[in-house]
């Protein structure tokens, strides 16, 4: 397995400065976070509070009827611990009104719909609270595309988007996040019994080792397998990266003018901030 050591003090300082500058330079003081009670969103809440102050951070908790009750409890534990603002909006009625009209709702369709309903509420709340929407995606899920496009991926920026999940477990301890939130099985909690590792087919330490070998060290598939990783898992993960590339790019525009968005109209995101 690869080494995921981290200078937590340095990373904390860097991310806090990043949050401050992104929020303030965009003309805001506040942020909203969709707080599921999972480790990633809780970690972002902890970092946001340190960067912006508790009065400027609002957690929106959005359970559905099948959500694990422990998730909401964990979210409330974090909120109480941090003293940040929060609001709970049950999305069961909103989602079920739609689901009832549809005949064959699969887990994936339902999961995506729930993620996008939460996104819709979160962006509305950001307008109400005059705030930016914090992204809570980590590097493992961004690179695997293991998230809903325009759902939980929708955000103003990603403060923990360059940390693998394995690093997040360590970093969360440093940030003194309650142990029960760190040690529970990572899950998108989109349907009962769902866990990341079951769905991705391997433990996070394996997944992240393969990812860092491929992404950061630019090893080939064969080189990674030769190191002793399962061919099936390596192939499945690398396939996921390829198949989900569309989620990480600006959608193509059919080009015929001299300057076209995404191709040769290349302005930085942060221009004039």
């Amino acid at each position: 397995m690869e080494n995921f050591s981290l200078n937590c003090e340095l990373v904390k300082k860097f991310i806090i400065e990043f949050i401050k500058e992104e929020v303030h330079s965009n003309g805001f003081n506040r942020c909203v976070i969709g707080l599921s009670g999972g480790l990633d969103s809780v970690l972002v809440a902890y970092l946001s509070k340190e960067a912006l102050g508790k009065e400027n951070v609002k957690a929106i908790i959005m359970p559905y009827k099948t959500s694990n009750p422990a998730s909401k409890e964990d979210a409330l534990t974090a909120v109480t611990h941090l003293g940040i603002l929060h609001e709970t909006i049950d999305i069961t009625k909103i989602a079920d009104t739609y689901f009832k009209k549809e005949k064959e709702m699969t887990n994936i369709r339902m999961g995506n719909f729930l993620a996008r309903s939460r996104m819709s509420i979160l962006f509305d709340k950001s307008r109400e609270f005059k705030a930016l929407v914090m992204g809570t995606s980590n590097k493992s899920e961004l690179i695997l595309g293991y998230s809903t496009w325009y759902g939980d991926m929708a955000a103003s920026f990603y403060p923990i988007g360059d940390l693998y999940k394995t690093q997040i477990f360590k970093f969360a301890q440093f940030m003194q996040i309650p142990k029960k939130i760190i040690t529970k099985k990572p899950s998108a909690d989109l349907w009962p019994g769902q866990t990341d590792e079951k769905e991705l087919g391997a433990k996070y330490i394996q997944i992240d080792s393969i990812l860092t070998l491929y992404v950061d060290q630019r090893k080939t598939k064969d080189e990674i397998i030769a190191l002793g990783y399962s061919q099936k898992i390596v192939e499945s993960l690398l396939n996921r990266i390829k198949k989900t590339q569309f989620k990480r790019t600006f959608p193509p525009v059919a080009k015929f003018s001299p300057r076209t968005f995404g191709l040769d109209f290349l302005y930085p995101h942060d221009l004039g901030k």
Binding site: F14, E17, F18, E21, E22, F157, P268, H269, D270
Partner: peptide, 8 residues
């Protein structure tokens, strides 16, 4: 110092 498009 400072951030531009995520570069710190």
């Amino acid at each position: 110092v400072g951030f531009e498009d995520g570069l710190g």
